[in-house]
Each structure stands twice: as structure tokens, then as C-alpha cells.
Design a protein around this nucleic acid. Structure first.
Lengths: 361, 361
DNA sequence: TTGTAGGCGTTATCAA
DNA sequence: TTGATAACGCCTACAA
């Protein structure tokens, strides 16, 4: 029980070590350890080999396996910025989903910089990733299809206009419909919107949904009371709210394309002595961490961040393992979370909002 | 210029392909492409080979290289939960720092579950990581040193009591001193604290710092006005604030071990009709995203999340490449960010706070 | 049912 | 200065 049959080196035990110990050839050990091929071996032998492997703490060498099989069991995950609160839960989902299948993720942030994105994609290629999960792609990105040629890809949360990629999306249209219907049920009729960047599918789809449903619900203003953000952040939310206010046109609510824009918008309103929700109701989208702790706590559309990551992971594993690759498309349901930033339109409030906003000019 | 010398397969070009094209042996190509060894080759040949490699888009196969060199250029990163807002900036720093050195990270979340942590550590070992960055270790964790035996480790943000690990830490002591001195300069003398879990070095060190500096500044109450959180989250912050209030003992400020505890504490105060900062001043620690958007905006200690990640990455790469491994210890400076949650103690405020808090019982 | 042999792409050692 | 050869650990025809 002392110096057990020595390992080939200082390192971990290999198939060869086990083979020597059991007194059988390496290939036999290899077969015994593979569920697929072990069926064709003597059951007793298989048992014996497996026990030996277990006792020695054998773990297949991933490099050797990858070299032979040309599969790294590694998935590249590309996002705009991991520090943006919207992404960590998705990544968490991806990692858990991949781990279930014995894959791992390597993730990198593009900062929305196409040049950086290219470098990252090339680096991941070089690393030999088996598949790619893209969370930060632009709607129209010619480069990305070239850079990912020949390897399975799925997008999460975002989609490209025309690509053979699988997609995992939130029900953007449904979410906006919910928010709009909620405001309408509260009596709001003059509803402005702060749209996200149209270069992202999220920005584009949510804005399209706003127009569509505003029309259907008969609350569409003409010309539309819309401000377009150039990025999904608080500063742009503030800028857009200002932009809406200086038009001098009255409105009693704002639908924002995401939570960060909503937070900025509320700050801008406050700076103009407009209170939320007393004067103006505001809705967000995403239900980021902490938005329930703001004051006013944000009414927003909750999306299934974590689940989106799980789905993306399952899909990409499927694509990697079961060629040929059929793109799959998943849409995750959303729900409205009503908190404090929306309120029933009270009598005369419309008038007040009008006065207040007009004095901005 | 048409069908160039065919690749060995459908896949990427290999050393062999380049060798064939240039008309030399593979080993020569290998040497030419390595800066270390190319010095011993004919400069013209090196040039020729390099150009050929470049033109063919050659990228070394990481699996083959790893198999031969026993180095995967992969670092395992273990954290409690990637969805906790404190960690993404650190991870971002780690990824950027590793990328500079052509390493990648694989990250996994333990959820603070020791069993999960063990599985993760084992999986990373099996994956052949060259080094480990630990962000979620407990102060006393016997298991972790066994599980990481033989591979370089650095901790970030956290430290273990006695291990041969390198560490990257914020200046916890200095941060608490800053917060305390700030409150004292505002006239506060009765200062309570909500301490973090003592099983984490952050919780332990910050609490020790509080006691030390409270004593030095002469504001120490006896017995101490301290509540211990069982986790670093908002719910525990609320619970602890309640706990402080029901003592009936007066205080005008609370120093919280991190931002999330502070957020919870403020919510609890509000529920008891105590306003922050008018009645009670509150400080946090970390300067998480969004805490500047809360109302009141949180006065807190800003730490260098991103830089901590960068440092950890540099250190672990160093440890991996330059054996023998000498543990290195880095402490990052912090700064106090004064916002709205702290205010000068006004006349009679102490009295009011006393009345209000005593009616809780 | 099991053993043999060859190769995945690199690097390292030894010759020449 | 360059070439030949072997080996890293695993998988898989093919042979026995």
C-alpha cells in the first residue's frame, strides 16, 4: 500500500499507468472508460479497470483528447461588457448550462468596439473554441459572419439581421406591449419613448414594438414623441429625457428601452422639478439588480436573464455535437413588474405636466 | 495563386504545411516561429518562414502545444457569484490582464457552497489550469489548500488565514479609517457598525479596523454597537439595522461593511421613519455600480475593482512562468467618496434619534 | 474480446 | 545552422 505503481511522471496518472497496473493494453483501458465502447468488453474487465481508474484518480488529459478529437469542449462567449449589470446573470446561466455538459466558457468583452471584437473572435478561433455565443453583436455586422465561418454560433439577447445563427431572445414585443397596456390602463394617453440604439436588435425591436402597439392601442402621437439613445446607459437616458422636454409637447409617461435609460430619465426629470411618478410615469426594461431599491422603485419588464444563458448553452452544445447544424430559435417569455415609478393619471395632471415641461424651453 | 499547397486536412494550416511550402523541416519552422530559438537560425530563412506562416494564417494548435509543454495557458477563476455586482469589474480586470499575456480565464461561481467549490476546483484541475485566482475563499478553509496543492494560487479581495497564496487586497483598514474619520469630523460620536460575515477576510478585517480606529478616535461605545451580518446582502443589512434599533441604544451613524448591507440598512431605517441622512448617517464600502443613483446617494469607500483584477492576473502569470513561486502581496489604495448618505450632526439631532430609535421596542 | 500501430501538432534532444 | 526522431496522452482502425 506504499509506493503504488509509479505514474509516468510527477504528473497525473495516464491511461498507460492504469493499463500497467491492471495488466492490460492502453487501448483496452481507453475502451473500458468510454461508455460507448465498453459494452463490447468483458464486463468483469471493465469493472476492474474502472475501479483502478477511480482509485488512481485518473482524469483524461484534455489537451491530448482535444488534439486527437479536434474538440476542445470550450465555448467562446462574446459580450459588450461584463461589468454591465445586464450580462452577469446571463453569463452565469451560460456557465451553468455548459458545466452540465462538461464544457467551459471563455468570455471576453468587446466594449462595443468592432476592432476589439475582431481581435477577440480571432483569438477565440485560434484557441480552438468549438462554438460561439454572441451577446454583443450589432444588427448588421458583415464582419461577424466571416469571422465565425465554419463554427457554430448562437446569439443571446441580440440578433443579427440575416445570419445562419441560432438565437435566444426575450419577448421584446410582448414586454413593450405589457408596459404600454399598463400605462394605458392607468389612464395615460400621451406616452413618450426613449428608444435604444437602433444598431442593436434590442433597441430596434423594442422601438418597433412601441410603434406597433401604440398604434394598436390608439395612443400614438404624431409626430411620435421619441428620443433615440446612442447607448444603453444613464447619461443617454438623461440626454434623451431633456430632448423630450424641450420639444415642449406634453406627455405623462415615458417608456424606456431599458432600465439604465429609465434611471437617467428619472434623474433628468427631477432636475426639471418633475417628479416620478407624480408628474410623469416611467417604465424600464430588464429588471436589473438594484432597480427595486431605487426611489422610486422602477416599474419594468422582467426578463429571464439566467434562463437565457442556460438556453444558449444548451443550444450551442447541441449544435456542436449534433451536426449538421440547424439554427434554433428560442423566445423567452417576459413579465411586467409594477413598482413605484408608474401611477394612475390623476385629474389635471396632464395639464400640470404640460405647464412644467413647457417652461423648460 | 489558386489552390495553394493543400492543408493537411480541411482544418487550419500546421507547421508541416509551412515546412512543405518553404521546403524545410518542421522543426526548423517551429524554431523560426519562436523568438527564443530563432536567433540561432539564418536570418533570411527565419524571415522567409515567418512570411509564409503569416500568409497562410498559421496559428499554433493550443491542444498540441499544451500536450507537449504541459501548460494550458488557462487560469481558473473561482468566485462566490458572478451576478454579485462586486465581482464583474474584477473579472473584467482579470480577463484583460490575462489577455495581455495570452492567457484565458475560465470562471465558475461557488454560491458560497463548499461542496460546489470542491467540485469546481477539481474540475479546474482536471481541465489542467496553470494557475488559480480565488475570490471567494473563506478565511479558514482547510480544504482549499489540499485541492490546490501543486498549482500556483493567488487570492483577490479575500485572503485565507495561513496559506502560501499570493494576495491582492484593498486597503480595508484605511477605508474604514477614512469612513470613521469622516463621520467624526461631521460631529458623530455614537457610531454603530454592521459588520460582514467574519468567515470572510473582508468582513473580519473591516470589523477589526472599525474597532481599532473607533478606539483611536475615541468613539468606541462599550459594549460595542455592532450587528453581524451572516451574508453580504441587502436582506442582512435590514435585519442588522433592526437589531441595532431594538437595543434602544442611541446612535447617529452606521458604518456598514459593504454597500449592499448599507442599502438594506437604509431601507430598514426608513421603515422605522428614520431618515438617512437627516436622522442617521450611513456609509458603505466598495462603491458598486448604481449606488451613486440611489437616494440618498451612498457615501462609500471606493475600491479599485478593475485594478485588483489586473494585478491578480499579472501575479498569477508571473507565478506560473517564473518558478520557484514566491508569494506576492499587494494592497490597493482606496478613497472615500462623500455623497448624500452622511451629514453633519445638527444640534439636537442626537436627541431626536434617541427618541425615534427607542420607540421601536 | 483484446492487442497493435499510427497519428493528432508541437517541442525537445540528438546528430549531422 | 538545420534535419531526423521521439514523445506528450489519447483515440481508433485494423488485426488477431
Amino acid at each position: 500500500m506504499k509506493a503504488r505503481a509509479r505514474k509516468s511522471r510527477g504528473g497525473r496518472p495516464t491511461l498507460k499507468d492504469i493499463a500497467r497496473k491492471v495488466g492490460v493494453h492502453v487501448s483496452t483501458v481507453s475502451r473500458a472508460l468510454d461508455v460507448q465502447t465498453s459494452a463490447r468488453l468483458a464486463p468483469k474487465l471493465v469493472e476492474k479497470i474502472r475501479r483502478a481508474a477511480l482509485r488512481s484518480g485518473y482524469k483524461p488529459n484534455p489537451a491530448a483528447r482535444a488534439l486527437k478529437t479536434r474538440k476542445s469542449r470550450t465555448i467562446g462567449v462574446v459580450i459588450p461588457d461584463i461589468a454591465d449589470p445586464a450580462f452577469p446573470p446571463i453569463i452565469r446561466g451560460i456557465e451553468d448550462g455548459l458545466a452540465r455538459n462538461d464544457y467551459v466558457a471563455i468570455v471576453a468583452s468587446t466594449d462595443g468596439n468592432p476592432w476589439r471584437q475582431q481581435r477577440i473572435l480571432e483569438a477565440m478561433r485560434a484557441r480552438g473554441v468549438d462554438g460561439l455565443i454572441l451577446a454583443g453583436v450589432l444588427r448588421t455586422d458583415a464582419m461577424v459572419s466571416k469571422l465565425t465561418a465554419g463554427i457554430p454560433v448562437t446569439t443571446v439577447i441580440r440578433q443579427t439581421d440575416a445570419s445562419p445563427f441560432s438565437t435566444v431572445l426575450h419577448d421584446e414585443d410582448g414586454g413593450i406591449r405589457l408596459a404600454l397596456a399598463h400605462l394605458v390602463s392607468l389612464g395615460h394617453r400621451s406616452i413618450a419613448t426613449i428608444a435604444g440604439p437602433q444598431s442593436f436588435s434590442t433597441g430596434y425591436n423594442r422601438h418597433a414594438a412601441f410603434n406597433r402597439h401604440a398604434e394598436l392601442l390608439g395612443v400614438r402621437s404624431d409626430p411620435p414623441l421619441t428620443a433615440f439613445a446612442r447607448a444603453f446607459n444613464e447619461a443617454e437616458g438623461e440626454r434623451c429625457a431633456e430632448e423630450l422636454l424641450v420639444t415642449g409637447r406634453p406627455f405623462t409617461a415615458i417608456i424606456c428601452a431599458n432600465d439604465r435609460l429609465a434611471i437617467g430619465a428619472i434623474a433628468a426629470l427631477r432636475r426639471h422639478s418633475l417628479r416620478c411618478p407624480e408628474d410623469i410615469s416611467v417604465t424600464g426594461f430588464n429588471d436589473m439588480p438594484l432597480v427595486d431599491r431605487l426611489s422610486p422603485a422602477l416599474t419594468t419588464v422582467r426578463v429571464q436573464h439566467f434562463q437565457a444563458g442556460i438556453e444558449a448553452a444548451e443550444i450551442i452544445v447541441d449544435m456542436v455535437e449534433k451536426n449538421p447544424v440547424e439554427p434554433r430559435h428560442t423566445i423567452l417569455p417576459v413579465e411586467l413588474v409594477v413598482r413605484e415609478s408608474t401611477r394612475r393619471l390623476s385629474h389635471g395632471r396632464m395639464q400640470r405636466a404640460e405647464n412644467l415641461s413647457s417652461r423648460v424651453e
